[in-house]
């Protein structure tokens, strides 16, 4: 029996400081996230300490805990993987610097991974079945992007949001409807008791071939429906519990219908048979149900990231093994790439 091989993965692209240990057979031994969600709640949706300082304070304890939970030591590690794009430059740098130091100190390879490819790869961690080639869909607070993914480490953008991300729309509509934070779960809960056809909200690009999204007009339409159109005499219905439920349900339907329609269109345009969906919005049950039934109707398979790997985490950095298997390592003078990569990343 060959001895197990261990990869340490680090993720600091936005709010979360995370580390995980994944074996070469893609078994997640530990998955530690220093989440600020409890702080989010306390401050009503804002990030109290978003900056690199929080990552600096958290990174070493998080790495230590990931190693301890996996019951491995630093010298057991074969390589270190780290998300270097896209994200907030100061935050990415903390993770990269930690990863570089470990790789240099331990004399092991450094592997730079794409945060969005990792979100898609989270789906592969939940199935024994080969996922690639596939269409990858990242739907979160910061992203709503469709990719054609020939392999785990290559992808080509098919389309994305031109303004607000889907998850951001959920958060802002939750604020408009006074439902609290985070927006996804509270809208979903309120929508259960609402009529999803009470209001017909705009669904940008729904009937166009382009695989892009726009949720900013939808957000504004919900604002007007809830609190009245500026300059208009008409007074909107009172914003009582039922009205809030109706608006939440109608909003959620509008978003999901667009997400599902564009997923189906992407499958048709690429001719792929498997769709992989990651990111925080992939945790929305109504979205999962609706997309699963569309997949059945249109004859493709859909894979969702496991619930605990939908939001930002380092376990999805198991993607690093794909780079290692392809012998694609990164130099120690590597820099971060904060911007969204809009061209193919199959070379570097």
């Amino acid at each position: 029996m060959t001895p197990p091989r261990y990869l340490l993965a680090i993720e600091t692209s936005c709010d979360e400081t995370a580390a995980a240990v994944i074996t070469h057979d893609r078994h997640v031994l530990s998955n530690v996230v220093a989440s600020q969600t409890d702080l989010h709640l306390r401050y009503g949706g804002v990030v109290p300490e978003i900056a690199s300082r929080a990552h600096v304070q958290a990174i070493l304890p998080v790495v230590k805990e990931a190693l301890a939970k996996a019951n491995v030591t630093l010298k057991d590690l074969e390589a270190v993987a780290v998300a270097t794009r896209p994200g907030l430059v100061g935050s990415l740098l903390i993770g990269l610097t930690a990863a570089k130091s470990l790789a240099w100190g331990l004399g092991i390879p450094l592997v730079a991974i794409d945060h969005l490819q990792a979100h898609i790869y989270a789906c592969q961690l939940a199935t024994q079945q080969p996922l690639y080639p596939c269409v990858g869909f990242v739907v979160s607070g910061g992203h709503t992007n469709l990719y054609h993914c020939p392999t785990p480490i290559t992808f080509n953008p098919l389309g994305g949001t031109i303004d607000d991300a889907a998850g951001e729309a959920f958060d802002k509509v939750a604020q408009i409807l006074n439902l609290g934070y985070p927006g996804g779960p509270v809208i979903e809960a309120a929508a259960i008791h609402g009529d999803s056809h009470a209001v017909q909200f705009p669904q940008a690009f729904l009937h166009e071939d382009r695989l892009d999204f726009s949720f900013s007009g939808l957000k504004t339409a919900v604002l007007y429906a809830a609190h009245g159109t500026p300059g208009a005499r008409a007074v909107p219905p009172p914003l009582n519990t039922q009205r809030i439920a109706d608006l939440a349900a109608s909003f959620q339907r509008a978003v999901i219908e667009v997400l599902v329609a564009k997923s189906v269109a992407a499958m048709h345009q690429t001719g792929e048979t498997r769709l992989a969906v990651g990111g925080g919005v992939a945790a929305n049950k109504a979205f999962r149900t609706s997309l699963s039934s569309a997949a059945t109707r249109h004859g493709f398979e859909v894979f969702f990231a496991p619930l605990d790997l939908c939001t930002d985490n380092a376990a999805m950095g198991g993607l690093g093994w794909e780079y290692i298997d392809a012998r694609q390592f990164s130099p120690l003078d590597l820099d971060v790439t904060p911007g969204l990569v809009r061209v193919s990343t199959d070379h570097r």
Partner: peptide, 24 residues
């Protein structure tokens, strides 16, 4: 795109654009 989640986006044109969002 909206920088609400990303907090600051950078774009490269005739000049660099740093697009901040303090919402969060």
């Amino acid at each position: 795109t909206s920088p609400t989640f990303g907090l600051v986006h950078e774009y490269s044109g005739r000049l660099m654009v740093y697009h901040f969002d303090t919402y969060r």
